[in-house]
Design a protein around this nucleic acid. Structure first.
Lengths: 246, 246
DNA sequence: CGGCTCATGTAAAGATCGTTCACATGAGCT
DNA sequence: AGCTCATGTGAACGATCTTTACATGAGCCG
């Protein structure tokens, strides 16, 4: 350990050179391992090969580090949601579901970020930059909902896009938080979190009057309006959003 | 402080008499204030007027205290959900929505319990009693979903009750976690969390084919297929699940 | 090149916490 | 009365968070 320290110092000299970044990376790894609660400032410093006091040159305190990670997380989150949305291509509903999956994928693949963003107790409004990043990410969902709402079938009242966005967000967060991550996934499920969320969103969209069974792949097209399932959908398992009704 | 300590000791003698309970109460208060992460074993001891080592006579460690609180929380949670469900009276859909509201009410009114149960990082499967309590609570939702699924309108495949229960749980948890508690509630919303969840569940149920608009909207645009027990509405604002469509 | 300055890192120290251990107390039973 | 055991105390250890005084050296200016 002292050996490694000397080694490092030989490599980089007295000054680390990029300690701030190194600390963020170290913290990210630690949070992924032990959760935001278990992560310690001292550990991050040790992992970066510096003394316990060094991090205070770059972050006011432990919370500011956490807040920085959350902010960075929201930025990556936004990027992934944006890519998934792809401006609504090839069609709005398909893209919309892709956003839902991207949400879960992010929660699953970046547990450290997700933890810092939503479960670490970091108050979103503490840091304006953090709040802004959070809002930008949400705005992707919001924009998608906006487009979806505009497609609301004629004859039905058009749902407020903001409400739809909040609904989708809460579904995605609920599934991610309860079933899709780390030890929360210990709960035994009859289906994968992805399938669960997909079915949930499809049922929800159908509740708003959207035809959710687009594009039957092999069989002939289905005039979708009233018997909305009963045909094999593309992303939808046969038998509607919830597999074979037995 | 030493004064208070002597005072207390005068009141109760060397032995506290009910330290376990006092610790649970103290912890509950502390968690409500500062979150499960911020709560410390030593603080709880201090608040109960005993030394820092005393709690170890009643709890193996801090995690066991947290776990006990979570368990107790699940028990109260179950009681409230059971009361709200009221065995499906007066009709299944109404009772079902009451359960949703009870969920949110619990999250709002018992933030400490909710925090310990879902956000403290306590692994549910660590303690068998905890897991059992958790399952009992979920079984209320599950039973309600079962009854609801049995009412599934003819002509549509019957949704699996388990899936419905998981969907409802994830919606409720998502709304509670994102919007309905403590500093998470800082996010500005166009509607209350209760209304948000109610609309969400209604839309979802409609997506399953349930007639959710007891008391049809002003512009009757809904062809409610079969009203099994659709009678006088309650709780649903006129105009569909999201208020007046403008 | 020499020296100044300031960002960056270190060491030491105080405060708090989780946890353990040896010991004290006293409530209840015999 | 005396024994016993659950319950509480005090001291101690190691870890963490955070501050403070001091050390280092990179970059700049003359």
């Amino acid at each position: 350990m002292s050996w490694r320290k000397e080694q490092r110092r030989a490599e980089r000299g007295y000054h680390h050179g990029n300690l701030k970044e190194a600390l963020l990376q170290a913290a990210l790894g630690l949070i992924a391992e032990k959760g935001a609660a278990g992560f310690t400032f001292a550990d991050a410093a040790r992992m970066a090969g510096v003394s316990a006091a060094a991090p205070y040159r770059h972050f006011r305190d432990r919370d500011e580090l956490l807040s920085s990670i959350a902010q960075r997380g929201f930025e990556q989150f936004e990027a992934r949601l944006t890519a998934a949305w792809d401006d609504g291509r090839p069609d709005t509903v398909t893209a919309f579901e892709r956003v839902g999956k991207a949400y879960l994928a992010f929660a699953r693949e970046e547990p450290a970020f997700y933890n810092a963003m939503f479960e670490s107790g970091v108050p979103v409004d503490a840091n304006p930059a953090l709040q802004a990043a959070s809002e930008r990410a949400f705005n992707i969902i919001r924009a998608a909902a906006e487009r979806l709402a505009a497609l609301s079938p004629p004859g039905t009242p058009r749902p407020p896009a903001m409400m739809m966005a909040l609904h989708i967000w809460s579904m995605a967060h609920g599934v991610a938080s309860l079933f899709s991550r780390g030890d929360a996934a210990r709960r035994k499920l009859p289906m994968s979190p992805d399938e669960l969320l997909e079915a949930e969103v499809l049922i929800y969209l159908r509740g708003l009057g959207f035809p959710t069974d687009r594009r039957p792949p092999a069989k002939g097209a289905e005039p979708p309006p009233v018997p909305p399932e009963a045909s094999s959908g593309s992303g939808v398992p046969p038998g509607g959003p919830w597999g074979k009704p037995k």
